[in-house]
Simulated assay, not measured.
Amino acid sequence: MSELAGTPHAAASHTGAGSMDATATKAGPGRSGLAGFASRHGIYLFLIALIVVSGIVAPSFLRGDNISNMLMQMAPLGIVVIGQTFVILVRGLDLSVSSVMATAAVAATSFSGTNADLPAVLGLGLAIGLGTGLANGLLITKRRVSPFLATLATMIVLQGIRFAWTQGAPSGSVPPLLRTVGSQAFYGVPYNLMVMVVLAVVFGLVLHASTFGRKVYITGGNPLTARLVGIGADRVTIACYMISGGLAAIAGLVLSGFVGIVDNWVGRGFELDSIVAAVIGGVALSGGRGSIPGALAGAAILTVVFNAVLLFGLPVQFQIIIKGAVIILAAAFYMRRAH
Rank of each mutant, 00 (worst) to 15 (best):
A150M: 09
G232Y: 10
A331W: 02
C240N: 11
L193T: 06
T180E: 12
R143A: 15
F306D: 12
L207G: 02
I320Y: 14
H208I: 07
A120L: 15
A338W: 04
G246Y: 03
P175I: 04
A239K: 10
P190I: 07
F270T: 13
V266D: 01
G188V: 08
F148H: 06
F312D: 05
T211H: 12
G294K: 00
V53F: 07
A17V: 08
V189D: 02
F37Q: 10
G313F: 05
V195Y: 01
L285C: 01
F312H: 11
S60M: 08
L311R: 03
P29C: 00
G168S: 13
S13W: 13
V52G: 03
G246N: 02
L224I: 11
A248D: 05
D263W: 05
V276R: 04
I67W: 01
G172M: 03
T219C: 03
F258C: 07
P29S: 14
D117E: 15
V198T: 12
C240S: 08
V279L: 07
A75V: 11
V304W: 04
I327F: 11
D65S: 13
V97R: 01
N192F: 11
G129L: 08
A209Q: 13
D21H: 09
M196S: 08
G188S: 09
A150T: 10
A297G: 05
S96D: 10
T154K: 05
H9C: 00
A164K: 10
G33C: 03
L224F: 04
L47F: 15
M101W: 00
L314Q: 14
V195M: 03
A116P: 04
L95P: 00
K215W: 13
L158M: 13
M74T: 09
A10Q: 13
L118Y: 07
F318G: 02
L149W: 07
Q73C: 10
S19V: 10
V197M: 14
L4P: 02
F312Q: 11
A27S: 14
L134A: 13
A249W: 00
E271G: 05
T103M: 15
V236C: 08
V197T: 14
T103Y: 12
A153R: 04
M242P: 02
P76G: 09
L193C: 06
A127G: 14
G282E: 02
I82H: 02
V309P: 14
I67Q: 02
Y334Q: 15
G133W: 00
A150Y: 06
G64M: 13
Y44A: 15
A185Q: 13
W165I: 13
T237G: 01
Q84I: 06
T141F: 08
V283N: 02
A12H: 03
G221I: 09
V100F: 00
S19M: 09
G28M: 06
V202K: 05
A135I: 15
F186T: 04
H208C: 04
E3N: 12
M155E: 10
S32W: 11
C240Y: 01
G182Q: 08
I128Y: 09
M242T: 05
G137H: 01
N136I: 06
I79L: 09
G188L: 05
V121H: 07
L95A: 04
G113S: 04
A5S: 12
L177R: 05
G267P: 02
G78F: 01
F270V: 11
L310E: 14
G257K: 03
L93Q: 14
L118W: 03
F333I: 14
V189M: 09
V326W: 01
G129D: 05
